[in-house]
Nucleic acid binder design. Structure first.
Length: 697
DNA sequence: ATGCAGAATGC
DNA sequence: GCATTC
DNA sequence: GCAT
C-alpha cells in the first residue's frame, strides 16, 4: 500500500542548481562518497590552484594571506556543512591547510569543544598551540564577510579585535594587546549600500494561517457531569486559506499530545492539616518550619507532604491576591527566573491574555528573513545552532507582536528576546532589505535536510545521515539508496508526506471527530470524549486531531480497555488507516495512540491522537493538550518558580529536585489540583483564560 | 557561567 | 541509549 | 543567541 501520490512530487528536485561557490562549477554531487575533511580540503585547494587564482568570484578576499585549519565536528567525514564552510573560506581568499601544521597555519577555526579539538590534534592543552595561531569561531569568518560588506577596506579596525571577539576559547585569547571595545559593537550599520545582485528565493517558510477567535464559552474544564458536548465552538471562524495542497515540508503541525504511564497519586485528596517537618522551601517560612529531612522510615512522611502541599497552596492563595498578580513572595520580591516565558516586566507570559497577532505585522519582511535564517539553522547539528533556533524563535514571536515598524538598533534591542546580534540583523534587513547571513548559511544540504526532517519520525540526525548517504529525494529513500532503511513509521511518513504536513479545515476535524465520538459513545455512553489542541483553541484549521477520552468513575467503572475496542471499530470503519504509535498495554487507564485517519475513502489522511487519562486528571490534561506550547511553557515555568510542578497529570507541590542537577526529580510531590483547569489557573494566580486566549505563539 | 520543559515511545 | 515526538 |  504505497501511496504514490505523496512520493510523486518532489519539491527537492525542483530544478535548483545552486552554485554555492561561483568558481567551482560542478562540485561532485557524489552520492555516498565519504570524504574526510582533510581530503576535501586538499581537493578544494587543488581545484583552486588549477584555476590559477582566476576565480570569477566577487567575494571579498578578506581572508587573503590567512592560512586556515578548519576543524569541523567530525574528523572522519566532511559533512556538507563542513564542506560548505571550507568552500567559503577559500572563496574569500583564505588558504585551507588540510591538516594541523603549526608551522603553516595562522588560524584554527572551530566551533567545537576544546577537548575533542585537542585530542584530535594530539595535544594536551591549548598552550601547546603556538601563540601566534588564532583560534577562532566560525563566526569570525561570517562576521568577517559581513564586515567587509560594510567596511569596504580591511584596515578599518585592527584584525585582532575581531579575532578577539570571535575567540573560540576564552582562556586562550589571541596574542596582541587586549582590545578595548565597549559593550556592543559600533552600531555602524547603515554604511555602504550593497550593490550585490539580489538572488531572492522565496523560501516559503511556515505559512501559518493564524487568527480566528472564538468566544468559546465552553469551559470544558469544569464539567463535573458526563457532558458529551462538543459544540462546535466556532461562531466566527475565519475563512481559512485553502492552502493544504502543496507539499510544504517546512512547518510540521504542532499539537501537544503525549501521555505517560503510571499515575503516582491516584487521587488528589489533601488530608487534614498537619504540620510536619518541611524540607521543601517555602518562601518566608524556612526558619519557622523545623528543619529536618524526611526520614525514609517515618511512617508519616507521606502525610507531611500532603500537609506541606496544602500549606503551600494556601500560601500562594494569599500571595496571588485575586487574579493577575505576578509571582511575588510575601515580601513583594519578584520571583524571577531566566527564561522566555516571562514577559519583559518580570511577569509571566501566561499572566495576560493573549492577543492574536495579525497575519501581517509592521515588520513582516524582517520576520520572514529571520524565519528563513532560523530554518537554515535548524538543519545544522551543533548545539549552538540548536539554541540559536530557540532564540530566533523567541525573537520572531516578539517581533510579530511588535505593533510598529522598527527604525533603529536601539528600538530592536528594546524588544524582549532581541539581543545584539539579532538587532544587527534586523537593522540590516530594514536598511538593505537583505540579510547576507542567509546566503552563508544556505549550504546546499539545507534544502534536502529540511525535506527529510518533514517526514514523520525523522529528525535532524536521521535526515543528515541519509543526506550523507547520498539521498536527495523521497524517491531515493523509497529506493533504499545508500542502504537507507525506513522504519515502519518513517515509511508511512514518506508515503503520506504531503498529507501529514498539511493542515485541515476546522470543519473537517469536526466531521471526523463527530464520527469518532458517535462510535465511541456506542461503546460506552458515559464516556467523556473531547477534542483538544488547536481545534479547541478555535483555530480555523488544524494540523491534527487530539481526542481526549476518560470516564467518570462514580458508578465504579472506568474506561479501562475501551481504547482497544474503539481503535478496532475505527479501523473497521475505515476511519483509521495507519497506526503510528500504539500503547504497549491497552489495560492501563492512561494511554496514548497516534495514527492517521481520513473522513472517507477519498479524503486526505490526517493525523489523529487519542489520549485516555484517569478521570481525576482531566483538568490538567485539558489544559496541557489545549494550550499552545508557549503558553504551556510559561505556565510550567511560573509553576516551577512558585515551587510547583505542572504536567499533563496535575499540579504538584513539594517536588524535590536535585540541587546539582535541577532536572532530576527526587520526589514527585503531591498533587494539589488536576480536576479542573480553573483550579490550576487559580492556584497559580493566573487569570482564567478561555482556550482561544491561550495562544502565545 | 548556565539554562532554555519534560516525558514517553520506538528502534 | 539515542532519536523523535508532542 | 538571549537573559540572568
Amino acid at each position: 500500500m504505497i501511496d504514490v501520490r505523496a512520493a510523486a512530487h518532489d519539491p527537492a528536485k525542483a530544478g535548483k542548481s545552486k552554485a554555492a561557490v561561483p568558481g567551482f562549477k560542478s562540485r561532485p554531487k557524489k552520492s555516498k562518497e565519504l570524504v574526510t575533511p582533510l581530503e576535501y580540503a586538499q581537493r578544494l585547494q587543488a581545484a583552486l590552484t588549477e584555476l590559477g587564482g582566476r576565480k570569477n568570484t566577487s567575494a571579498s578576499q578578506f581572508l587573503k594571506g590567512k592560512r586556515v585549519f578548519y576543524y569541523g565536528r567530525d574528523l572522519n567525514f566532511a559533512s556538507a556543512e563542513t564542506r560548505g564552510r571550507m568552500e567559503l573560506i577559500v572563496k574569500h581568499g583564505g588558504t585551507l591547510v588540510p591538516s594541523y601544521d603549526p608551522a603553516q597555519i595562522t588560524h584554527i577555526v572551530t566551533d567545537g569543544a576544546k577537548r575533542p579539538l585537542l585530542r584530535s590534534l594530539g595535544l594536551r592543552t591549548l598552550e601547546d598551540i603556538p601563540g601566534h595561531i588564532h583560534i577562532v569561531k566560525w563566526s569570525w569568518i561570517t562576521s568577517g564577510i559581513g564586515r567587509m560588506r560594510y567596511a569596504g577596506n580591511d584596515d578599518e579596525l585592527p584584525q585582532t579585535d575581531y579575532e578577539f571577539m570571535h575567540a573560540s576559547f576564552s582562556e586562550r585569547m589571541p596574542p596582541g594587546p587586549v582590545p578595548r571595545f565597549k559593550a556592543g559593537f559600533p552600531p555602524r550599520t547603515k554604511a555602504v549600500s550593497l550593490s550585490s545582485r539580489v538572488q531572492e528565493r522565496p523560501r516559503n517558510g511556515a505559512p501559518s494561517i493564524r487568527g480566528g477567535s472564538v468566544d468559546g464559552s465552553d469551559d470544558s474544564g469544569e464539567i463535573s457531569h458526563i457532558t458529551n458536548f462538543t459544540q462546535d465552538a466556532g461562531p466566527k471562524q475565519r475563512v481559512s486559506t485553502p492552502d493544504h495542497a502543496g507539499p510544504s515540508p517546512l512547518s510540521p503541525p504542532l499539537s501537544p499530545v503525549h501521555g505517560s504511564r503510571s499515575r503516582v497519586y491516584s487521587t488528589c485528596i489533601v488530608p487534614p492539616k498537619a504540620s510536619g517537618p518541611a524540607h521543601i522551601r517555602i518562601p518566608e517560612d524556612d526558619k519557622r518550619s523545623g528543619k529536618g529531612e524526611v526520614s525514609a522510615d517515618d511512617p508519616l512522611a507521606e502525610f507531611y507532604d500532603h500537609a506541606r502541599a496544602e500549606r503551600d497552596v494556601e500560601l500562594h492563595q494569599h500571595n496571588t491576591n485575586g487574579d493577575a498578580e505576578e509571582g511575588r513572595t510575601e515580601k513583594g520580591e519578584m520571583l524571577h527566573k531566566p527564561g522566555e516565558a516571562k514577559n519583559g516586566k518580570g511577569g509571566f507570559l501566561c499572566d495576560n491574555k493573549g492577543n492574536r497577532s495579525p497575519d501581517r505585522c509592521a515588520n513582516q519582511d524582517v520576520v520572514e528573513k529571520l524565519e528563513q535564517l532560523m530554518e537554515l539553522h535548524r538543519t545544522k547539528s551543533s548545539m549552538e545552532d540548536h539554541w540559536r533556533v530557540y532564540s530566533y524563535g523567541k525573537a520572531i514571536r516578539a517581533l510579530r507582536q511588535h505593533p510598529r515598524r522598527i527604525t533603529s538598533y536601539e528600538q530592536a534591542r528594546g524588544i524582549d528576546g532581541v539581543g545584539d546580534k539579532t538587532a544587527q540583523k534586523i537593522m540590516e534587513i530594514i536598511s538593505t532589505g537583505e540579510l547576507r547571513r542567509l546566503d552563508f548559511e544556505k549550504t546546499d544540504d539545507a534544502e534536502t535536510i529540511t525535506l527529510f526532517q518533514g517526514i514523520y519520525g525523522v529528525g535532524l540526525n536521521t535526515a543528515r545521515k541519509w543526506y550523507n548517504r547520498g539521498c536527495r529525494t523521497l524517491q531515493d529513500l523509497n529506493e533504499g539508496k545508500g542502504g537507507v532503511q525506513l522504519s515502519h513509521v518513517q515509511q508511512i511518513g514518506v508515503n503520506y508526506y504531503a498529507d501529514i504536513n498539511s493542515r485541515m479545515p476546522r470543519a473537517e476535524a469536526t466531521e471526523i471527530f463527530e464520527r469518532v465520538k458517535t462510535i465511541a459513545l456506542r461503546l460506552d455512553p458515559r464516556l467523556f470524549i473531547e477534542i483538544l489542541g488547536s481545534y479547541r483553541r478555535g483555530e480555523p484549521d488544524c494540523g491534527d486531531i487530539d481526542v481526549l477520552i476518560t470516564r467518570p468513575t462514580d458508578d465504579g467503572k472506568t474506561h479501562r480497555g475501551l481504547l482497544r475496542r474503539l481503535l478496532g471499530e475505527l479501523h473497521a470503519q475505515g476511519i483509521l488507516t495507519e497506526d503510528l504509535c500504539l500503547p504497549d498495554d491497552f489495560n492501563d487507564l492512561e494511554l496514548v495512540y497516534r495514527g492517521l485517519c481520513r473522513r472517507d475513502a477519498y479524503s486526505t489522511r490526517r493525523r489523529i491522537d487519542f489520549l485516555t487519562i484517569p478521570y481525576e486528571s482531566r483538568g490538567a490534561a485539558l489544559l496541557y493538550y489545549t494550550s499552545d506550547p508557549q503558553f504551556n511553557r510559561s505556565l510550567r515555568m511560573k509553576a516551577n518558580v512558585m515551587g510547583f510542578a505542572l504536567n499533563q497529570r496535575g499540579l504538584f507541590a513539594g517536588v524535590v529536585r536535585n540541587p546539582s542537577d535541577k532536572r532530576q526529580k527526587l520526589s514527585d510531590g503531591t498533587c494539589v489540583a488536576s480536576e479542573t483547569e480553573r483550579e490550576i489557573f487559580r492556584i497559580l494566580g493566573v487569570p482564567w483564560q478561555e482556550p482561544h486566549e491561550r495562544v502565545r505563539g
